[in-house]
């Protein structure tokens, strides 16, 4: 049985059909990368998974349990187990970095405050923001905000972590740091779905690469298969284009 099983998901924004029958299986402790051209629906798929956009057709199961996205309780329960880092970070502007990280564990999970703060400080230090804990998002660079968003997601100790373009605005030094953290998380058994445009990164960390175009899953396989030996013409085209850059 697959840890996360996405079956034939379709979704739309108003009259705009974005996902057209997406299926994807993810094993526990694996890193699955979603790649594809801009606008292919990668972020939208993540939004469906966390219950921000109800799927039109299809279903998602987690550990064999079907998630009923029309059921509030069910969605809430799934949000206790999933965490997402948004492409635009979506930090709370009225809170410091530390507050952004601690608010959910303290106020929503009702965990011990001192313990949460210790953990949050550790997490922020891990992503290189020890000195910025008391800064507000508008005082941080894009890459710094992104790392706060990563720390915020990790503070929830999710079983499934969804990362949307997390390396896009990081400098190379930090990319390797974030990469290390991601690998370590995977080693600890966390399952991740990563959206990324950085093929080097994708190749290095993923166990599975899923290539999407126009809301359809074109090809799913190991990084070696998808990058060196693509079966589909559309994949080959995409890979070639990227390798030229």
């Amino acid at each position: 049985m697959q840890h996360l099983d996405i079956v034939d998901i379709s979704a739309r924004y108003g009259s705009h059909q974005v996902l057209r029958g997406i299926s994807l299986g993810v094993d526990r402790g694996q890193i699955t990368s979603l790649v594809g051209p801009s606008g292919s629906g990668k972020s939208t798929l993540l939004r469906v998974l966390v219950g921000l956009l109800p799927p039109e057709t299809g279903h998602v199961s987690f550990d064999g349990q079907r998630i009923d996205y029309s059921n509030k309780k069910n969605v809430k329960a799934i949000r206790d187990r999933f965490a997402i880092v948004f492409q635009q970070y979506n930090l709370f502007q009225n809170m410091t970095a530390l507050d952004n990280v601690t608010i959910a564990p303290i106020k929503i999970r009702k965990r011990n405050r001192a313990e949460v703060i210790d953990e949050a400080e550790e997490l922020l230090a891990k992503v290189g923001l020890k000195e910025k804990m008391r800064s507000y998002p508008d005082q941080l660079s894009g890459g710094q905000q992104q790392r706060v968003a990563i720390a915020r997601a990790l503070a929830l100790k999710p079983e499934l972590l969804l990362l949307d373009e997390v390396t896009a605005s990081l400098d190379p030094e930090l990319v390797s740091e974030v990469l290390d953290s991601i690998r370590q998380l995977a080693a600890e058994g966390m399952t991740m779905i990563i959206v990324s445009h950085e093929m080097g990164f994708v190749r290095e960390v993923s166990s599975t690469v899923a290539f999407m175009v126009d809301g359809k899953m074109v090809e799913v396989g190991s990084p070696a298969d998808v990058f060196e030996n693509p079966k589909e013409a559309r994949t080959r085209e995409f890979v070639n284009k990227i390798l030229q850059h």
Partner: peptide, 27 residues
């Protein structure tokens, strides 16, 4: 009120009331 912040609040598991209290009102 930024829709993006509301979505973050929602996915962190905040109830409606918590969203009002911690995100909407301070903003």
């Amino acid at each position: 009120v930024r829709q993006t912040e509301m979505e973050a609040a929602e996915t962190l598991g905040m109830s409606r009331w918590q969203q009002v209290r911690y995100v909407i009102v301070p903003h």
